[in-house]
C-alpha cells in the first residue's frame, strides 16, 4: 500500500484549498450564471474551515477562479483591514502559494468584497466576487422557494414592487438602504448583496465581471460585463443614491482626505461629534496621496 507521508504545513492542502472536483462544479455553475444573467444557479456549497456567514460563498468562488499569478484584494465594508478581510486574505495566502495580495483596487485582478463595490471603476481585466447572505430578493414576499422559482421564471416581481409602493406610502420615499432589488438584463431581479444604494449603479454596464456567492444558501449568480442592471423603481419615483447632504444642503466631505464624491461612513469621535470618512479605505489613501502631491506642487 502506498502511504503518503504525513504533511503538517499548508502545502498539505490542494492549491486553493478546494479539491479539483469542487472547483470544477463551481466553475460550471459560474459559467451557467454568466450565461443566464441574474439567474440563481444552485451548487453544492462545500464546508469551509470557517462558519457559514463569514463569506464562505464568496471564498469558494475566489478559490475556484484563482491562479498562481492572480493579484487578490479582499475588502470588508470598504476596508482591507477589518477582521473578516484580514482573515480571508490570510487564508487565501496560506492555501494558494504564489498568489500575491494587494490592498490597491487598481492592481487587483480578483477582488472579493463584503458589502461594497470599490469607488474606482473596475476594468475588463478584473473580476469582483461579492459575498451574499440572502440571494433571493423574493424571500421577503414569498416564503416558498418553489413558488419563488416560478415567479423568477415568469419575471413576476409585482409583489416586490408593492413593497416599494408601501414604502413610498409610509415614508414618501423608498427607504431600502441596501440589498436594493435590481433587474438584470430585463428579466431576473437579483439581491445585489448588502451593498449600499450608492454602489448599485456600478453594476449597470460594468466593464468587470460581477459574481455573487451565497455559501449558506448555496447559490451563485452573476452580472456579466456590459449587462443592463436596473434598480426597481417607479417612473415618477426614480431610484436615487444616498446624497450625504448636511442640514444646510452641502455635500459632506471625507474628514481624512477631503473627497466629496465617495460613499461616506458616519461615526462618532471621542468628543461625541459626528465624523464622516470614505468607506473605501484604498480610495481614501489614494485621494490623500493626490492631495499631498498637489500641496507639494503648489508649494
Amino acid at each position: 500500500m502506498n502511504t503518503l507521508p504525513p504533511k503538517t504545513d499548508a502545502s498539505a492542502y490542494n492549491f486553493g484549498f478546494l479539491d479539483e472536483y469542487a472547483k470544477k462544479e463551481i466553475r460550471r455553475a459560474i459559467l451557467k450564471a454568466v450565461a443566464i444573467p441574474g439567474y440563481q444557479v444552485p451548487y453544492a456549497s462545500r464546508e469551509m474551515p470557517m462558519g457559514r456567514g463569514f463569506g464562505t460563498g464568496g471564498l469558494q468562488l475566489t478559490l475556484s477562479l484563482i491562479g498562481p499569478d492572480e493579484v487578490v484584494k479582499v475588502i470588508d465594508q470598504g476596508s482591507d483591514d477589518s477582521v473578516n478581510a484580514v482573515n480571508l486574505r490570510q487564508f487565501i495566502e496560506m492555501t494558494c502559494p504564489g498568489v500575491s495580495t494587494t490592498t490597491r483596487t487598481v492592481e487587483a485582478t480578483l477582488i472579493q468584497s463584503r458589502h461594497r463595490i470599490p469607488e474606482h471603476t473596475l476594468s475588463a481585466a478584473q473580476i469582483i466576487v461579492l459575498q451574499v447572505p440572502y440571494p433571493d430578493p423574493l424571500v421577503v414576499v414569498e416564503p416558498s422557494e418553489d413558488k419563488r422559482k416560478t415567479m423568477h421564471g415568469e419575471a413576476d416581481y409585482s409583489r416586490l414592487l408593492v413593497k416599494l409602493y408601501e414604502d413610498i406610502v409610509k415614508f414618501d420615499e423608498i427607504t431600502l438602504s441596501h440589498r436594493y432589488p435590481t433587474r438584470i438584463n430585463d428579466h431576473y431581479v437579483i439581491d445585489p448583496s448588502p451593498i449600499p444604494r450608492w454602489d448599485v449603479p456600478k453594476i449597470n454596464n460594468s466593464e468587470a465581471l460581477i459574481l455573487f456567492g451565497a455559501g449558506r444558501e448555496k447559490k451563485i449568480y452573476a452580472v456579466p460585463p456590459h449587462t443592463k442592471a436596473e434598480p426597481l423603481a417607479f417612473t415618477d419615483v426614480p431610484f436615487r443614491v444616498e446624497h450625504f447632504h448636511d442640514a444646510t444642503g452641502n455635500r459632506r466631505t471625507c474628514s481624512r482626505c477631503g473627497c466629496d464624491g465617495s460613499f461616506l461612513d458616519e461615526f462618532t469621535n471621542d468628543a461625541g461629534a459626528k465624523v464622516y470618512q470614505c468607506s473605501d479605505s484604498d480610495w481614501c489613501d489614494e485621494m490623500l496621496l493626490q492631495v499631498k502631491s498637489w500641496r507639494e506642487v503648489s508649494a
Binding site: D156, S158, R159, L161, V162, Y165, I168, F234, T235, D236, V237
Partner: peptide, 11 residues
C-alpha cells in the same frame, strides 16, 4: 399589486 402585474409603473 394587480396594477403592477399589468405593468403600470407610475406611482
Amino acid at each position: 399589486e394587480r396594477l403592477l402585474m399589468s405593468d403600470l409603473m407610475d406611482y
